[in-house]
């Protein structure tokens, strides 16, 4: 596998230089050739920088000759950055999780969960721009499942809930129930609230109280609340004060810092 991180760094440095020259002569189509060596042999790198529509007939023919009958890969610089994210930052400690995803979860979600693991790696490193970019791609792929899988994966639900539930139900030969549990989790997150940009006090309170009521009706033992960022943490704490007063709430436990809160609302079981 090529060293995409190294390649990207080189490409971006080089591209930056070319970018300057484009600004100086904006009416030119720029096709530059740069030999890059020591990446698994010699690779011919061609950069088509900008103003493609102004390419001359000769330049178009040159380009078409270049790729005719040869293996090629034509990629935007943004795509290269994303490839580098996938191949250059792989965390081997996730390999058991990737195996579980491949063997036990619906095929349509495999790539979403792997993207979720990638998002979590970058979140752990505090790389918030990359986290936002990956989450956006997950939501572009599937607005509901993508958003929920991003949140669930980042909050550790794969290890804490999905894998134990899968094991318990498989041991009881109730695999169909696992699929029902899983589908509800990734489409509705019925026992979890992730405080986000769409929440204000009223909306968060409505969602949380609705989920607590739903969980109580179905004898679920708890509802969890997750908040990232100072504003979201403060918002969650305010609502949790009110939650404590509800009759069917046994207790509220939470671990928090200024910018991170994970709370568990323990519910009274119906007698």
């Amino acid at each position: 596998m090529p060293d995409w991180v190294g390649i990207t760094a080189k490409l971006l440095d080089f591209f930056k230089l070319l970018g300057v020259s484009i600004q100086k002569s904006p009416k030119e189509t720029t096709i530059n050739k740069n030999r890059v060596t020591n990446i698994g042999g010699t690779v011919n790198q061609y950069f088509i920088v900008a103003n493609g529509p102004l390419a001359t007939k000769r330049q178009r023919e040159q380009f078409q000759r270049m790729i005719q009958g040869k293996p090629y890969s034509i990629e935007s610089l943004d795509l290269i950055k994303k490839k580098a994210l996938i191949t250059g930052t792989k965390d081997k400690t996730n390999s058991n999780l990737v195996d579980f995803i491949a063997k036990s979860l619906p095929a349509k979600d495999h790539a979403l969960w792997e993207a979720g693991l990638l998002l979590r790696q970058h979140f752990t490193r505090g790389e918030n721009e990359l986290v936002a970019e990956i989450k956006q791609d997950m939501m572009s792929t599937d607005p509901i499942r993508g958003k929920n899988i991003a949140n669930l994966c980042n909050a550790g639900y794969l290890e804490d809930e999905i894998i134990p539930m899968h094991k318990a139900l498989t041991d009881l030969e109730r695999s169909e129930d696992f699929i029902k549990f899983y589908e509800a989790l990734v489409t509705q997150t019925p026992t979890s609230v992730f405080v986000g940009m769409s929440h204000n006090e009223r909306i968060l309170k409505e969602e949380l109280f609705r989920k607590i009521k739903y969980a109580t009706n179905y004898s679920a033992p708890y509802v969890k609340v997750h908040a990232l960022g100072r504003h979201h943490v403060e918002l969650a704490k305010e609502i949790l004060k009110e939650v404590r007063k509800l009759d069917y709430v046994e207790d509220v436990f939470y671990a928090d810092s200024l910018s991170h809160l994970d709370a568990t609302i323990a519910l009274r079981l119906k007698t």
């Binding site: 490409l11 591209f15 189509t29 690779v43 011919n44 790198q45 061609y46 950069f47 088509i48 920088v49 900008a50 103003n51 493609g52 529509p53 390419a55 178009r60 380009f63 078409q64 270049m66 790729i67 040869k70 293996p71 090629y72 890969s73 034509i74 990629e75 935007s76 610089l77 943004d78 290269i80």
Partner: peptide, 20 residues
């Protein structure tokens, strides 16, 4: 393997696609 990289602006994308 020929590796060709292009800027992400819409004009350049259009140019690349027109070649195909």
């Amino acid at each position: 393997m020929i590796q060709i990289n292009f800027a992400n602006d819409e004009h350049t994308k259009g140019f690349i696609l027109s070649l195909f």
